[in-house]
Amino acid sequence: MNLAAVVPLDSTHGFLSPSGVEIVFVLVGLGVLGAALLTVTTKQLVHAALWLVVALGGLAIEYLLLTAEFIAWVQVLIYVGAVVVLVLFGLMLTRAPIGVSPDADSGNRWLALGVALAAAATLVTLVVDAFRCTWIDLGTVAGSTKANGVTLFRYWVLPFEALSVLLLAALVGAIVLSRREKKEP
């Protein structure tokens, strides 16, 4: 909705028409948004997860368009390959039914809708207002594996190691949580 209003701004930048990358970006973005909307509105639980796959895959394409190649593949590997599989796993273990679940949405969906719309309006207004005249230079690849590796293991080593501790903690936590305690005889 706001995209249409934003597009003419391009002309002020000197381009008569938006570049190909921008068109692809907008189209994929619309797809991502649509998939995301379906994810949060569909009444079929597994469909929601599959729409999430679409949305996340679309985001990976957006990353590629933003020249963040490494991030894109990480996105595919972790999100599509692992997170969504876990989510599907969870859905199946909690016995997601085939077909429509009438109570997929809770009672405060209208409140949620109001809040979300208000937040969207606020954020979009702010963002558009703030970055009206900002352009990204996509001339060089910004997110190659090499570049990422270099910065990650040179400047971000300490957070990276901290993160590994976090992951270990999460691993232990998940194992402890899902362990079934032996029933008292």
Binding site: V6, P18, E22, F25, V124, F131, T134
Partner: peptide, 9 residues
């Protein structure tokens, strides 16, 4: 590319 696109998305 216009920064507004990814930001708005």
């Amino acid at each position: 590319m216009h920064l507004v696109f990814p930001a708005v998305l």
